[in-house]
Design a protein around this nucleic acid. Sequence first.
DNA 1: CTACCTGCAAATAGTTTGCAGAATA
DNA 2: TATTCTGCAAACTATTTGCAGGTAG
Lengths: 165, 165
Amino acid sequence: MLAEIHEKLNTFLKGKGLRSTPQRNAIIDIIFESDDHFTADELWERIRKTNSKASRATVYRTLGLLVEANLLYEIDLGEDTKTYDPNFNDKPAHNHLICIDCGKVLEFEDNHLELLNDCLTRRMGFRPKSQSIRIEANCEELRTKGCCQNLIQARIAGKRLPKKR
Amino acid sequence: MLAEIHEKLNTFLKGKGLRSTPQRNAIIDIIFESDDHFTADELWERIRKTNSKASRATVYRTLGLLVEANLLYEIDLGEDTKTYDPNFNDKPAHNHLICIDCGKVLEFEDNHLELLNDCLTRRMGFRPKSQSIRIEANCEELRTKGCCQNLIQARIAGKRLPKKR
DNA sequence: CTACCTGCAAATAGTTTGCAGAATA
DNA sequence: TATTCTGCAAACTATTTGCAGGTAG
Protein backbone atom coordinates (compact mmCIF):
# COMPACT_ATOMS: atom_id res chain seq x y z
CA MET A 1 0.00 0.00 0.00
CA LEU A 2 2.60 2.49 1.15
CA ALA A 3 4.99 1.33 -1.56
CA GLU A 4 2.28 1.92 -4.11
CA ILE A 5 1.78 5.46 -2.88
CA HIS A 6 5.49 6.21 -2.89
CA GLU A 7 5.66 4.95 -6.43
CA LYS A 8 2.71 7.02 -7.53
CA LEU A 9 4.28 10.11 -6.04
CA ASN A 10 7.67 9.38 -7.57
CA THR A 11 6.11 9.07 -10.99
CA PHE A 12 4.38 12.38 -10.41
CA LEU A 13 7.59 14.03 -9.24
CA LYS A 14 9.64 12.72 -12.14
CA GLY A 15 7.02 13.92 -14.59
CA LYS A 16 7.44 17.40 -13.19
CA GLY A 17 11.22 17.33 -12.86
CA LEU A 18 10.96 17.38 -9.07
CA ARG A 19 12.94 15.39 -6.51
CA SER A 20 12.46 12.75 -3.88
CA THR A 21 13.77 13.91 -0.52
CA PRO A 22 13.89 12.46 3.00
CA GLN A 23 11.43 15.10 4.22
CA ARG A 24 8.88 14.34 1.54
CA ASN A 25 9.16 10.61 2.17
CA ALA A 26 8.84 11.00 5.92
CA ILE A 27 5.73 13.13 5.50
CA ILE A 28 4.11 10.55 3.24
CA ASP A 29 4.89 7.70 5.62
CA ILE A 30 3.26 9.50 8.48
CA ILE A 31 0.20 10.56 6.52
CA PHE A 32 -0.58 7.16 5.13
CA GLU A 33 0.13 5.06 8.21
CA SER A 34 -3.51 5.71 9.07
CA ASP A 35 -6.47 6.86 7.00
CA ASP A 36 -7.62 9.56 9.36
CA HIS A 37 -8.31 13.15 8.43
CA PHE A 38 -5.82 15.71 9.64
CA THR A 39 -4.87 19.37 9.46
CA ALA A 40 -1.48 20.71 8.44
CA ASP A 41 -0.65 21.52 12.02
CA GLU A 42 -1.67 18.14 13.37
CA LEU A 43 0.55 16.54 10.77
CA TRP A 44 3.47 18.76 11.75
CA GLU A 45 3.00 17.79 15.41
CA ARG A 46 3.01 14.11 14.51
CA ILE A 47 6.22 14.57 12.55
CA ARG A 48 8.12 16.33 15.26
CA LYS A 49 7.36 13.42 17.59
CA THR A 50 9.24 11.09 15.27
CA ASN A 51 12.96 11.17 14.64
CA SER A 52 12.33 12.59 11.17
CA LYS A 53 12.09 16.32 10.86
CA ALA A 54 10.48 18.75 8.48
CA SER A 55 9.66 22.39 8.94
CA ARG A 56 6.15 23.76 8.80
CA ALA A 57 6.94 25.33 5.44
CA THR A 58 7.97 21.99 4.01
CA VAL A 59 4.86 20.34 5.40
CA TYR A 60 2.67 22.90 3.68
CA ARG A 61 4.61 22.67 0.45
CA THR A 62 4.42 18.88 0.44
CA LEU A 63 0.70 18.89 1.18
CA GLY A 64 0.26 21.05 -1.88
CA LEU A 65 2.15 18.56 -4.00
CA LEU A 66 0.18 15.61 -2.69
CA VAL A 67 -3.10 17.31 -3.45
CA GLU A 68 -1.88 18.12 -6.93
CA ALA A 69 -0.82 14.49 -7.38
CA ASN A 70 -4.27 13.36 -6.26
CA LEU A 71 -2.94 11.40 -3.34
CA LEU A 72 -4.68 13.66 -0.89
CA TYR A 73 -8.01 15.37 -0.95
CA GLU A 74 -8.78 18.70 0.65
CA ILE A 75 -12.09 18.76 2.45
CA ASP A 76 -14.12 21.38 4.20
CA LEU A 77 -15.40 20.51 7.62
CA GLY A 78 -16.74 23.95 8.33
CA GLU A 79 -13.76 24.95 10.41
CA ASP A 80 -11.34 27.72 9.51
CA THR A 81 -8.54 25.25 8.93
CA LYS A 82 -8.11 23.07 5.89
CA THR A 83 -8.50 19.37 6.51
CA TYR A 84 -6.89 16.68 4.41
CA ASP A 85 -8.29 13.29 3.61
CA PRO A 86 -6.06 10.45 2.41
CA ASN A 87 -7.76 9.51 -0.78
CA PHE A 88 -6.89 6.00 -1.82
CA ASN A 89 -9.28 5.24 -4.60
CA ASP A 90 -9.53 8.36 -6.69
CA LYS A 91 -13.18 8.48 -5.88
CA PRO A 92 -14.98 11.42 -7.43
CA ALA A 93 -17.31 11.65 -4.44
CA HIS A 94 -16.34 12.78 -0.97
CA ASN A 95 -19.22 12.60 1.41
CA HIS A 96 -18.95 13.41 5.05
CA LEU A 97 -21.30 13.25 7.97
CA ILE A 98 -20.19 15.48 10.80
CA CYS A 99 -21.54 14.98 14.29
CA ILE A 100 -22.49 18.33 15.79
CA ASP A 101 -22.16 16.90 19.27
CA CYS A 102 -18.70 15.45 19.19
CA GLY A 103 -17.14 16.50 15.91
CA LYS A 104 -16.73 12.92 14.72
CA VAL A 105 -16.50 12.63 10.96
CA LEU A 106 -17.88 9.66 9.04
CA GLU A 107 -17.29 9.07 5.39
CA PHE A 108 -19.97 7.41 3.37
CA GLU A 109 -20.80 6.44 -0.16
CA ASP A 110 -23.99 5.69 -1.99
CA ASN A 111 -24.47 4.96 -5.63
CA HIS A 112 -28.00 6.30 -5.83
CA LEU A 113 -26.83 9.56 -4.42
CA GLU A 114 -24.03 9.86 -6.91
CA LEU A 115 -26.26 8.93 -9.82
CA LEU A 116 -28.90 11.42 -8.78
CA ASN A 117 -26.34 14.21 -8.45
CA ASP A 118 -24.94 13.32 -11.80
CA CYS A 119 -28.35 13.60 -13.45
CA LEU A 120 -29.16 16.88 -11.76
CA THR A 121 -25.86 18.35 -12.88
CA ARG A 122 -26.42 17.40 -16.50
CA ARG A 123 -29.94 18.75 -16.40
CA MET A 124 -28.48 22.11 -15.39
CA GLY A 125 -26.19 22.05 -18.40
CA PHE A 126 -22.92 20.96 -16.85
CA ARG A 127 -20.60 17.98 -16.93
CA PRO A 128 -20.05 16.65 -13.42
CA LYS A 129 -16.47 16.65 -12.23
CA SER A 130 -16.64 15.99 -8.51
CA GLN A 131 -19.22 16.09 -5.80
CA SER A 132 -19.07 16.35 -2.06
CA ILE A 133 -21.82 16.16 0.45
CA ARG A 134 -21.61 17.47 3.93
CA ILE A 135 -24.25 16.49 6.43
CA GLU A 136 -24.40 17.92 9.91
CA ALA A 137 -26.30 15.76 12.31
CA ASN A 138 -26.88 14.99 15.95
CA CYS A 139 -25.85 11.72 17.47
CA GLU A 140 -28.82 9.44 18.07
CA GLU A 141 -26.98 7.59 20.81
CA LEU A 142 -26.39 10.80 22.70
CA ARG A 143 -30.02 11.81 22.33
CA THR A 144 -31.52 8.55 23.53
CA LYS A 145 -28.97 7.38 26.07
CA GLY A 146 -27.66 10.71 27.22
CA CYS A 147 -24.09 9.91 26.38
CA CYS A 148 -22.05 8.89 23.38
CA GLN A 149 -18.79 7.02 23.04
CA ASN A 150 -17.41 9.47 20.51
CA LEU A 151 -17.98 12.39 22.81
CA ILE A 152 -16.29 10.65 25.71
CA GLN A 153 -13.32 9.74 23.55
CA ALA A 154 -13.08 13.27 22.19
CA ARG A 155 -13.04 14.73 25.71
CA ILE A 156 -10.33 12.32 26.81
CA ALA A 157 -8.22 13.18 23.78
CA GLY A 158 -8.70 16.86 24.55
CA LYS A 159 -10.03 17.62 21.08
CA ARG A 160 -11.79 20.89 20.59
CA LEU A 161 -15.49 20.18 20.20
CA PRO A 162 -17.69 21.77 17.54
CA LYS A 163 -18.75 25.27 18.45
CA LYS A 164 -22.41 25.22 19.39
CA ARG A 165 -24.70 26.71 16.76
CA MET B 1 -39.57 41.26 2.10
CA LEU B 2 -36.98 43.65 3.45
CA ALA B 3 -39.35 44.78 6.15
CA GLU B 4 -39.86 41.17 7.13
CA ILE B 5 -36.15 40.67 7.46
CA HIS B 6 -35.67 43.79 9.51
CA GLU B 7 -38.42 42.63 11.81
CA LYS B 8 -36.92 39.20 12.17
CA LEU B 9 -33.59 40.70 13.08
CA ASN B 10 -35.14 43.15 15.52
CA THR B 11 -36.88 40.32 17.30
CA PHE B 12 -33.59 38.50 17.47
CA LEU B 13 -31.78 41.56 18.77
CA LYS B 14 -34.38 42.31 21.41
CA GLY B 15 -34.28 38.73 22.59
CA LYS B 16 -30.57 39.15 23.21
CA GLY B 17 -30.71 42.64 24.67
CA LEU B 18 -28.92 44.06 21.64
CA ARG B 19 -29.63 47.25 19.72
CA SER B 20 -30.75 48.41 16.33
CA THR B 21 -28.25 50.83 14.80
CA PRO B 22 -27.94 52.69 11.50
CA GLN B 23 -24.90 50.62 10.55
CA ARG B 24 -26.65 47.34 11.11
CA ASN B 25 -29.69 48.49 9.17
CA ALA B 26 -27.61 49.76 6.27
CA ILE B 27 -25.74 46.47 6.09
CA ILE B 28 -28.97 44.51 5.98
CA ASP B 29 -30.44 46.73 3.28
CA ILE B 30 -27.44 46.22 1.08
CA ILE B 31 -27.23 42.48 1.62
CA PHE B 32 -30.85 41.78 0.88
CA GLU B 33 -31.33 44.10 -2.06
CA SER B 34 -30.16 41.15 -4.16
CA ASP B 35 -29.92 37.45 -3.44
CA ASP B 36 -26.37 37.01 -4.64
CA HIS B 37 -23.60 35.39 -2.70
CA PHE B 38 -20.91 37.66 -1.37
CA THR B 39 -17.79 37.80 0.77
CA ALA B 40 -17.25 40.12 3.72
CA ASP B 41 -14.94 42.28 1.68
CA GLU B 42 -17.26 42.55 -1.30
CA LEU B 43 -19.99 43.65 1.05
CA TRP B 44 -17.74 46.26 2.62
CA GLU B 45 -16.90 47.62 -0.83
CA ARG B 46 -20.57 47.86 -1.72
CA ILE B 47 -21.26 49.75 1.48
CA ARG B 48 -18.56 52.34 1.03
CA LYS B 49 -20.03 53.16 -2.38
CA THR B 50 -23.27 54.19 -0.71
CA ASN B 51 -23.70 57.20 1.53
CA SER B 52 -24.00 54.92 4.53
CA LYS B 53 -20.82 53.93 6.25
CA ALA B 54 -19.65 51.06 8.39
CA SER B 55 -16.16 49.90 9.19
CA ARG B 56 -14.80 46.51 8.28
CA ALA B 57 -14.98 45.48 11.93
CA THR B 58 -18.67 46.32 12.08
CA VAL B 59 -19.32 44.46 8.86
CA TYR B 60 -17.71 41.34 10.26
CA ARG B 61 -19.51 41.69 13.58
CA THR B 62 -22.86 42.15 11.87
CA LEU B 63 -22.31 39.19 9.57
CA GLY B 64 -21.77 37.09 12.66
CA LEU B 65 -25.05 38.27 14.12
CA LEU B 66 -26.96 37.60 10.92
CA VAL B 67 -25.62 34.08 10.71
CA GLU B 68 -26.56 33.51 14.32
CA ALA B 69 -30.04 34.86 13.62
CA ASN B 70 -30.36 32.49 10.66
CA LEU B 71 -30.84 35.28 8.18
CA LEU B 72 -27.60 34.43 6.43
CA TYR B 73 -25.93 31.16 5.66
CA GLU B 74 -22.21 30.61 5.50
CA ILE B 75 -21.18 28.46 2.58
CA ASP B 76 -17.94 26.98 1.39
CA LEU B 77 -17.09 27.51 -2.23
CA GLY B 78 -13.62 26.03 -1.93
CA GLU B 79 -11.94 29.41 -1.75
CA ASP B 80 -10.01 30.68 1.22
CA THR B 81 -12.61 33.33 1.96
CA LYS B 82 -15.95 32.75 3.62
CA THR B 83 -18.93 33.31 1.38
CA TYR B 84 -22.37 34.27 2.60
CA ASP B 85 -25.69 33.27 1.12
CA PRO B 86 -28.87 35.23 1.83
CA ASN B 87 -31.10 32.49 3.10
CA PHE B 88 -34.72 33.43 2.79
CA ASN B 89 -36.58 30.24 3.48
CA ASP B 90 -34.80 28.58 6.35
CA LYS B 91 -34.13 25.70 4.03
CA PRO B 92 -32.19 22.92 5.69
CA ALA B 93 -30.46 22.13 2.40
CA HIS B 94 -27.88 24.31 0.69
CA ASN B 95 -26.79 22.83 -2.56
CA HIS B 96 -24.41 24.51 -4.90
CA LEU B 97 -23.07 23.74 -8.31
CA ILE B 98 -19.83 25.54 -9.02
CA CYS B 99 -18.59 25.96 -12.56
CA ILE B 100 -14.89 25.20 -12.72
CA ASP B 101 -14.56 27.25 -15.87
CA CYS B 102 -16.05 30.54 -14.82
CA GLY B 103 -16.73 30.29 -11.10
CA LYS B 104 -20.46 30.76 -11.55
CA VAL B 105 -22.48 29.37 -8.65
CA LEU B 106 -25.93 27.85 -9.10
CA GLU B 107 -28.16 26.89 -6.25
CA PHE B 108 -30.43 23.92 -6.65
CA GLU B 109 -32.89 21.83 -4.74
CA ASP B 110 -34.24 18.37 -5.14
CA ASN B 111 -36.58 16.47 -2.90
CA HIS B 112 -35.29 13.05 -3.81
CA LEU B 113 -31.81 14.12 -2.91
CA GLU B 114 -32.86 15.44 0.43
CA LEU B 115 -34.90 12.39 1.22
CA LEU B 116 -32.08 10.08 0.28
CA ASN B 117 -29.60 11.97 2.42
CA ASP B 118 -32.03 11.92 5.28
CA CYS B 119 -32.36 8.13 5.08
CA LEU B 120 -28.63 7.60 4.83
CA THR B 121 -28.02 9.77 7.86
CA ARG B 122 -30.53 7.87 9.97
CA ARG B 123 -29.11 4.57 8.87
CA MET B 124 -25.75 5.70 10.20
CA GLY B 125 -27.33 6.41 13.57
CA PHE B 126 -27.73 10.18 13.42
CA ARG B 127 -30.53 12.71 13.26
CA PRO B 128 -30.10 14.95 10.23
CA LYS B 129 -29.72 18.63 10.99
CA SER B 130 -28.56 20.21 7.75
CA GLN B 131 -27.07 19.09 4.49
CA SER B 132 -25.11 20.79 1.81
CA ILE B 133 -23.97 19.47 -1.49
CA ARG B 134 -21.18 20.95 -3.51
CA ILE B 135 -20.76 19.87 -7.10
CA GLU B 136 -17.88 21.00 -9.25
CA ALA B 137 -18.58 20.76 -12.93
CA ASN B 138 -17.55 21.97 -16.33
CA CYS B 139 -19.77 24.13 -18.44
CA GLU B 140 -21.37 22.16 -21.27
CA GLU B 141 -21.83 25.33 -23.33
CA LEU B 142 -18.14 26.09 -23.12
CA ARG B 143 -17.22 22.55 -24.10
CA THR B 144 -19.47 22.31 -27.14
CA LYS B 145 -19.47 25.89 -28.40
CA GLY B 146 -16.04 26.94 -27.24
CA CYS B 147 -17.35 29.88 -25.27
CA CYS B 148 -19.74 30.55 -22.46
CA GLN B 149 -21.72 33.62 -21.47
CA ASN B 150 -20.81 33.30 -17.82
CA LEU B 151 -17.12 33.28 -18.61
CA ILE B 152 -17.41 36.34 -20.82
CA GLN B 153 -19.38 38.19 -18.15
CA ALA B 154 -16.88 37.18 -15.48
CA ARG B 155 -13.97 38.50 -17.55
CA ILE B 156 -15.74 41.79 -18.17
CA ALA B 157 -16.52 42.18 -14.49
CA GLY B 158 -12.88 41.45 -13.71
CA LYS B 159 -13.73 38.64 -11.33
CA ARG B 160 -10.98 36.30 -10.35
CA LEU B 161 -11.56 32.99 -12.08
CA PRO B 162 -11.27 29.62 -10.36
CA LYS B 163 -7.69 28.48 -10.06
CA LYS B 164 -7.12 25.66 -12.50
CA ARG B 165 -6.91 22.22 -10.90
C1' DC C 1 27.59 21.35 -11.01
C1' DT C 2 23.12 22.86 -11.53
C1' DA C 3 18.62 23.09 -10.31
C1' DC C 4 15.78 21.97 -6.89
C1' DC C 5 14.81 21.75 -1.84
C1' DT C 6 14.82 23.16 3.01
C1' DG C 7 14.46 26.08 7.10
C1' DC C 8 14.09 30.32 8.87
C1' DA C 9 11.87 34.45 9.47
C1' DA C 10 9.23 37.87 7.49
C1' DA C 11 5.08 38.70 4.69
C1' DT C 12 0.33 38.05 3.65
C1' DA C 13 -4.78 37.50 3.84
C1' DG C 14 -8.76 37.16 6.27
C1' DT C 15 -10.74 37.89 10.43
C1' DT C 16 -10.97 39.09 15.44
C1' DT C 17 -10.31 41.99 19.46
C1' DG C 18 -9.11 45.79 23.07
C1' DC C 19 -10.02 50.20 23.91
C1' DA C 20 -11.82 55.03 24.07
C1' DG C 21 -15.32 57.68 22.61
C1' DA C 22 -20.24 57.87 20.40
C1' DA C 23 -24.93 56.37 20.41
C1' DT C 24 -29.15 53.73 21.87
C1' DA C 25 -32.95 52.40 25.00
C1' DT D 1 -27.61 56.92 32.72
C1' DA D 2 -26.09 52.38 31.82
C1' DT D 3 -24.98 49.56 28.31
C1' DT D 4 -24.17 48.53 23.99
C1' DC D 5 -21.87 50.02 19.47
C1' DT D 6 -18.49 51.76 16.49
C1' DG D 7 -14.00 52.73 14.43
C1' DC D 8 -9.36 52.38 14.69
C1' DA D 9 -5.32 49.99 14.98
C1' DA D 10 -3.08 46.22 16.77
C1' DA D 11 -3.41 41.18 17.36
C1' DC D 12 -4.11 36.73 15.61
C1' DT D 13 -4.23 32.43 12.80
C1' DA D 14 -3.41 29.80 8.95
C1' DT D 15 -0.72 29.81 5.15
C1' DT D 16 2.74 31.54 1.71
C1' DT D 17 7.10 33.35 0.18
C1' DG D 18 12.07 35.35 -0.33
C1' DC D 19 16.40 34.15 0.53
C1' DA D 20 20.81 31.86 1.78
C1' DG D 21 22.72 27.71 2.33
C1' DG D 22 22.16 22.43 1.68
C1' DT D 23 21.33 18.37 -1.39
C1' DA D 24 19.70 15.19 -5.14
C1' DG D 25 20.62 13.66 -9.65
